[in-house]
Amino acid sequence: MTDKNKKVYLINLITVILVFVFLTILMKLEVISNYYQGLLVFICINIIVASSLNLTVGFLGQLALGHAGFMAVGAYGAAMISIAMRDMALFPVLQLSISLIGGGMLAGIIGYLIGLPALRLRGDYLSIITLGFGEIIRVVINNLKITGGAQGLSGIPKIANFTNSYWITVIVITILFALTHSRQGRAILSIREDEIAAEAVGIDTTKYKAIGFTISAFFAGIGGGLFAHYLAYLDPGTFNFMKSVEIVVIVVLGGMGSLTGTIFAAIVLTILPEFLRQFADFRLLIYSFALILMMIFRPQGIFGTSEFSLNGFLSKPGFFRNRIGKGDSKGGKS
């Protein structure tokens, strides 16, 4: 790791800690009520699930429409592991970690199994087949005895709170960020840019697609697990096609291929409905309208594929001056 990289990580780490301390103080002072704490947890869950989908949609360039299915697998997997461990009196953090990783692995395995036939197909067919699998997962959960069927699964230990959700989100984002900037990440990106060209330079496209898809499912499972441990009750109806679409909306609005864009969009799209309570009926109407307008006028999303970088702000004290300077020099050249 170079010195510059170290500095970048350090700056981001400090910011993340500062944000956490700030939010925690606000909670202690009861500026943020219990209700809004719950909202913060949902923001974390949405960030995890949407950025995991961004790996498939944004970085791999394959529109998957069954992400709620993986979330469901993770949620039920983690919940059942947690219920089985209920009497062992473990530390909540340990119990949460084990069950989340277990749920995530289960989602990852299912994701891999689905990915094998699905990823041989391209474009539209892949979307459809993931949609089909998402529906199948929902129907299976709805009909199995072990998952509580249509009545839902209750009695899940409520051990997720803001603190652990926040740090899990930080870990997930860090891993995804590191992954997309690694050698494997570049291979995945090359598939998005041009699958045939990627194959021609010797990238095993099927393998990297499967890797991307599996990791994406894994993290969706973790997000689902967190969801289960926060609500303490699971209803199979939650994870329907509409849920998948909602996650896609977050990714698309934020920018396909931008993790910071996804974080931004997840925060906005989780908070916004709360402030638009009186227009609750119109929420999805506005969402879908925004989605259509976005595709027509700015198909790359708010952030496009670029990442918002804190380092860019801090390392250049004359950030804005430089900007103006750059603009001038460009004007001069032409």
Binding site: V57, G61, L63, L65, G123, D124, S127, M242, V245, V248, V252, M256, D281, F282, L284, L285, Y287, S288, F289, L291, I292, M295, I296, P299
Partner: peptide, 20 residues
């Protein structure tokens, strides 16, 4: 992918329009 997402958007829009 943009066209496909638009189609999903239109579908959601009509459904919610009917709902309203």
């Amino acid at each position: 992918i943009s066209a496909l997402i638009t189609a999903i958007g239109v579908s959601l829009f009509l459904q919610n329009l009917a709902l309203v």
